[in-house]
Design a binder for these strands. Structure first.
Lengths: 265, 265
DNA sequence: CGAACACTTGACAGCCCTCAACGTGAGTGG
DNA sequence: CCACTCACGTTGAGGGCTGTCAAGTGTTCG
């Protein structure tokens, strides 16, 4: 896993920097003295706090956190084939996970926003099965997997959190595996981004895509041209407004209706 | 989860009854006195034994096992929306997991052979997200999830096993989500069945499909007609011989070559 | 300013789905 | 034992969705 402990200040994309991570400072190592404001969007601290993790356990969790970054667009967090040693929670930016088959086609497994966890699919097997690439300026919290699973033996909330994170990823992958139309897939993608960003305090109706059309296409298993066409048609139908990578969901309910078959069976 | 503690002797399909589960008897409750031959194909006992689980922990694991079945073709193990309480290891037979979207289309998530675990995707959320249906005569071992996760806090091997099972399911679902051709999907399915059956002591080149063409089609996201056509073409090309639900993989290497892009990225 | 890149737009083709009809085998009741 | 029924599977014809190929446009960056 890349270790870029540079001293650069976090440089978020403009639309995010306005509201994201008010409590974050530039400390590179865990800050025990400020345990409860630190990493407020992190899946682990959120879950552990809500499940009554005591202060000592929380300190233990922070002891094994290793801050990584900032990485820049194109940098790898890990590569397929690297020895699996750790999982990581995205702290800022967007990470793409993907694998390249022997025909050279890239399959995007997911886009991971702040608070989401990557590397879980490496637990089974001693190596990561995919690449993880920063799409913009990314910082993350690295958790040694042997150490966090040892801690999970003492902390029920942490074990449950890990189980749930893993289980959720199964569901996400299963939904994407369904045979959906290009419209359904695209609507699902837009609504999904909206909901995830909204849950992190961003606007649900207006946001910036951090990935290119080709990445979206590889994620949705469509051709880039199809992505362009569907987006244009959505715009012509008044569902969205889109300019380059800036999206506005004009008719969210209508989009949700298109995506409904995917989002809830 | 269905509780059919009937006294019927296990009734396997012919091709399986010849070699499968030599150590299994008809006991309906856990048999502590015969701990090490019991459930030899089970993912949990295998993993726990190999990771040095002590005798006392193994007994604890057996204490929380609840045997279910035999269920018969069409019986539900659980239904989408049922409260999530337990995971289950298939002991005999085949279980299909699937969900039905609001348009009435069935999406088959997986087929689960003896030794494989179902219900893991219900951990996140308090209800099962899919149905689990017996395709033939099925028996399984039910593990209360609260109890097995509590036990996993004491038994490192068990916790690791659960993590790995969850992680593996993510990978399986992700592969299926790729944009593969009908040929690749069908070859992957046949080779996958072959490998899984082979790992359980069955013939890798000749076996009986326990699911219909429609189920295979829904699993591979193809039309049933396409399944028929591809199978016929595989037969015409000398890759397989197939009669009704009986399959013989004549040219396994060639099939693996067709499926290679899917099986290993 | 030019080159590289991302994205868009159009024409066309191919893969696979849909619809329809037929064949086949298993279970059932007379 | 046989005819009937019905589900399942096969086979054929046709069409639609989406991929492929190609060219054009706009933007970013050196």
């Amino acid at each position: 896993m890349g270790m870029h402990h540079g001293g650069d200040p976090l440089r978020n994309i403009p639309i995010m920097s306005d509201i994201a991570f008010p409590g974050i400072n530039r400390s590179i190592v865990a800050d025990d003295g400020d345990a409860f404001t630190f990493c407020s969007t992190c899946a682990f601290s959120r879950a552990c706090l809500s499940q009554g993790m005591d202060k000592s356990s929380l300190r233990d969790l922070h002891m094994l956190v290793e801050h990584v970054g900032p990485l820049h667009a194109g940098d790898h967090v890990f590569r397929a084939g690297d020895p699996f040693e750790a999982i990581a929670a995205v702290r800022a930016g967007t990470v793409k996970t993907c694998s390249v088959d022997r025909d050279g086609r890239e399959h995007v497994l997911g886009f991971h926003l702040p608070g989401e966890v990557i590397g879980l699919n490496g637990i089974d097997g001693d190596r990561y099965p995919c690449d993880a690439v920063a799409l913009d300026t990314v910082t993350l919290c690295r958790f040694s997997f042997p150490r966090i699973s040892t801690l999970a033996m003492r902390v029920p909330g942490l074990q449950q959190t890990l189980f749930k994170l893993l289980s959720r990823d199964i569901g996400t992958a299963s939904v994407l595996a369904g045979d959906w139309s290009a419209d359904e897939r695209m609507a699902m993608f837009l609504v999904g981004m909206s909901r995830r960003l909204s849950a992190r305090g961003f606007s649900p109706s207006r946001f910036q895509l951090t990935m290119g059309r080709t990445d979206i296409a590889n994620y949705l298993r469509l051709a880039p041209e199809t992505v362009s066409r569907v987006l244009k048609r959505f715009q012509d139908d008044g569902l969205i407004r889109i300019d380059r990578r800036e999206v506005e969901l004009v008719a969210l309910p209508a989009l949700e209706s298109v995506a409904a078959a995917m989002l809830r069976d």
